[in-house]
């Protein structure tokens, strides 16, 4: 099959794929950072856990 030389559309697709990749990588970094921050804050972790929340409320 005869492939034509690279079209402008391929560059655009490359840019889009790269952009989505970077956004996903940034999202992973943010979730990781948030997890660390929540763990360091201690009590906040229970807020994400339904059973933990119930226990905390019952303790109060």
């Amino acid at each position: 099959m005869n492939f034509p030389k690279e079209h402008e559309i391929h560059k655009r697709r490359m840019g889009r794929n790269l952009g989505v990749g970077l956004v996903l990588a940034a999202f992973i970094a943010i979730v990781f950072g948030l997890t660390i921050a929540k763990i360091n804050n201690g009590g906040q972790v229970q807020g994400l856990d339904h059973s933990g929340t119930t226990v905390t409320e019952a303790d109060q």
Binding site: M1, F3, P4, I9, R12, R13, R16, L18, G19, V20
Partner: peptide, 18 residues
């Protein structure tokens, strides 16, 4: 015309990330 060129023309208006 090859399949590749048909595909390219069909997506001429394809958006970039920006």
């Amino acid at each position: 015309m090859s399949d590749v060129t048909i595909n390219t023309q069909a997506h001429e208006g394809e958006a970039g990330f920006g």
